[in-house]
Design a binder for these strands. Structure first.
Lengths: 140, 140
DNA sequence: ATATAATTTTATACTCGATACAAGTTAGGA
DNA sequence: TCCTAACTTGTATCGAGTATAAAATTATAT
């Protein structure tokens, strides 16, 4: 991690009202640099090799905190485990392949998605399911 | 259940390629008449009072089958438990209140939501989160 | 109609993502 | 420096959902 990146992550946390601990910086660094929409266990498994003292519980609680503070989006596209995504990106939809279970970003104009009067919405998710191009080829 | 409704549910099952058992008719009848987006356990709890021999496992497996055959939609709006919704209705989005955790239908034009070329999509979900009108009043 | 095969339902045990809790550790303010 | 609050850790636990096998029901063939 470069100094400038460390400083950026530090600011992200403090601006969200989160005290920046080593663990939180490490977890946020991985989520923001990761394009694979990992689960909490995947984040833990990846980070624990270089941080042997890291606890699985810490990963779960940090990710939950990040979601509450709006730093990270939780993706409940399937009933399996929750996946996580950097919230500081252009809003986009997600596609889950029923064959390989990978999650793909779908460029999408979400500005037209409005809720009824009286509701206060702070989060929108658009989830597609089907077959990704690769799996479609393999099946046909 | 009226005879005509029973016949309609029977047709729904056979047309979907599902053999219409008593349990499947009972579960489908509840889902299609229910507006509360129940979880599998809620379906079970509601039906078991009048059908004491009904098994929780049967409810889970029937709902799973209905989703596979397209009779019912599964709503994974939160990481809690999966909710179920009659699929034979106008496509619509869902809003989950963070306070009371109820699910509301949101009228929505979903026709504009398209996936990238090469992807084959068979299912779209739009999930909103925030505060429902009632909870908003209580908080302010 | 009766035996046999296939499907469905039931009940129990189990898996595993996620959380509650308590003890230990760290950080910041007086 | 000491005190307090916040954070992390590890263990135990919860609970939605599933695997499995036996029992029950339904379909098919003779």
């Amino acid at each position: 991690m470069t100094d400038s990146n460390r400083h950026k992550l530090h600011s992200m946390l403090t601006e969200a009202g989160i005290r920046p601990s080593i663990q939180r910086l490490t977890i946020l660094e991985y989520i923001t640099s990761c394009k694979s929409h990992p689960t909490a266990d995947e984040v833990y498994s990846h980070l624990v090799t270089d941080n042997p003292m890291l606890s699985r519980t810490t990963v779960f609680s940090c990710l939950k905190l990040f979601v509450e503070k709006g730093l990270v989006n939780d993706i409940d596209i399937s009933s399996d485990s929750t996946r996580y995504d950097d919230a500081h990106r252009i809003p986009h939809g997600h596609f889950m392949c029923r064959q390989c279970h990978r999650i793909f970003d779908i460029t999408l104009d979400m500005s037209a998605l409005k809720v009824n009067d009286g509701f206060v919405c702070d989060n929108v998710n658009v989830f597609f399911k089907g077959l990704c191009p690769e799996c479609k080829k393999l099946i046909n």
